[in-house]
Amino acid sequence: MGGKRRSYDAPFREGAVRIVMETGKPAAEVARDLGVHEGTLQTWVHRAKARADAEAAGGLNESEREELRRLREENKQLRKENSEIGMERDVLKRSVVLWVKEATK
């Protein structure tokens, strides 16, 4: 059905994208010259353009998006823990009130 899937290191991908973007050659031609599938190179170019557009628009880069995701998850966990602690506190307050009422009878 299909052959073994090849992987390319980051410097190779970046170099291939730079060739397409800086020379203006079609991605299909550059892909043939480098021995890369045309769709693969077009995907790399599309992602690079999207990153460049996001950075130009003041958006977040990949590491910032990952940190934001991690912080949101941490915030969600802390809110959950805070809610649980609040419920425990309320139960303890009610227990103390009942205990005091019972002790003063």
Rank of each mutant, 00 (worst) to 15 (best):
A27E: 06
K93D: 10
V96I: 11
R69T: 05
R65N: 11
K4C: 12
G59F: 06
A57E: 09
R89M: 11
Q77E: 07
E102L: 03
V36L: 10
A48N: 05
R70H: 12
L41E: 07
R65E: 15
S7H: 10
K25E: 14
E55P: 00
S7V: 11
L41P: 02
I85G: 06
R6W: 14
A54W: 07
W44Y: 04
D33L: 10
M1N: 12
R13K: 06
V96P: 00
F12C: 00
R65H: 13
N75S: 01
A50C: 02
T23F: 15
A52Y: 05
E55R: 08
A56L: 03
Q42S: 10
I85D: 10
N61M: 06
M1G: 15
G24L: 04
A52Q: 05
A52R: 06
K101S: 02
F12W: 06
K4I: 15
G24T: 01
A56T: 01
D9K: 08
T40F: 07
L78E: 03
V97C: 11
Q42N: 08
R89A: 12
K25Q: 11
H46R: 13
R65S: 12
E29C: 04
E67Q: 15
R6Y: 14
N82T: 02
H46P: 02
E55L: 08
R65M: 15
L60F: 11
S95Y: 15
L41V: 01
L98H: 15
I85M: 13
P26E: 15
A103D: 03
T104S: 07
R94V: 13
N82L: 03
G86V: 11
P26S: 15
V30H: 05
G24M: 00
R72C: 04
G3H: 14
R69E: 13
E55Q: 05
E14V: 01
L34P: 00
I85V: 12
L78P: 03
V36C: 10
N75K: 02
T23G: 03
V91F: 13
S95W: 14
A103Y: 04
R51Q: 09
V100P: 01
W44R: 01
G15Y: 06
L92I: 07
G24P: 00
P26Q: 09
R94I: 12
V97I: 14
K25N: 09
K76A: 02
G35D: 01
T43W: 12
E55I: 08
E38Q: 02
R18Q: 06
K49G: 04
